[in-house]
Amino acid sequence: MKNTNLSRRHFIAAASGVAFAAGFGAPAVALAATTKASNNRRQLAMHHIHTGESATLVYFDNGHYLDDGIAEISHLLRDFRTNEVIAMDRAVLDQLYLLNSQLGFAKPMEIIGGYRSPKTNEKLRQEGRGVAKRSYHMKGQAIDVAFPGTSLAKVRQAALSMKAGGVGYYPKSGFIHLDSGPFRSWG
Rank of each mutant, 00 (worst) to 15 (best):
L124E: 10
A13W: 06
K36R: 15
Y169C: 09
L178K: 04
H75K: 14
S117I: 05
K107H: 12
E122R: 15
S161T: 03
M1I: 10
F20D: 15
S38T: 07
M138C: 13
Q95P: 05
G23I: 10
G23Y: 08
Y59G: 01
I12E: 15
G168Y: 01
F175M: 08
H47W: 06
L44K: 04
F60C: 08
N121A: 09
A132N: 07
Y115G: 02
S74T: 05
A13M: 11
A32N: 12
N39W: 00
P108L: 04
V92P: 06
D94N: 12
A71N: 08
I49L: 12
H47D: 01
Y170P: 00
Y136A: 14
Q157W: 05
A164Y: 13
I143W: 00
H177I: 12
L77S: 02
V29Q: 12
A22G: 14
K154N: 13
R129W: 15
R41F: 02
I70D: 01
F105E: 04
N100L: 02
T82Y: 12
V131A: 08
A19H: 14
G149D: 07
M138K: 04
Q43V: 15
P108I: 03
F24R: 13
K154Y: 03
S38D: 06
R42I: 05
Q157E: 15
A132P: 01
A55V: 03
S180V: 03
R9D: 14
F147R: 08
L93I: 02
D68Y: 03
Q126M: 07
K119T: 14
D179T: 00
E72D: 11
T51Q: 00
A28L: 13
A91Y: 07
E72H: 04
M88S: 07
K133I: 11
G174F: 06
A14N: 11
Y65E: 02
V131I: 15
G187Q: 03
G23K: 03
N40C: 02
A87T: 15
S16V: 12
L103T: 01
I12S: 14
Y59P: 02
Y59C: 05
T51F: 00
E127Y: 05
Q43S: 12
R129L: 15
G104R: 06
L44A: 02
T120W: 07
S185R: 09
A132S: 09
T51A: 00
P171R: 03
A164I: 09
L96I: 00
T120H: 10
P27T: 11
I73S: 06
T51P: 00
A37L: 12
L57K: 05
M138P: 00
G168P: 07
R125P: 07
Y97M: 06
H137S: 06
R8D: 11
A28P: 03
L6C: 09
T4V: 12
I111K: 00
L96C: 06
G140N: 06
M1Y: 09
P27Q: 11
G149I: 14
D144T: 02
G165L: 05
H50P: 02
H47L: 07
V92Q: 01
R41K: 14
G128K: 08
F147Y: 15
G25P: 09
F11L: 15
K163D: 07
A45N: 11
M46G: 00
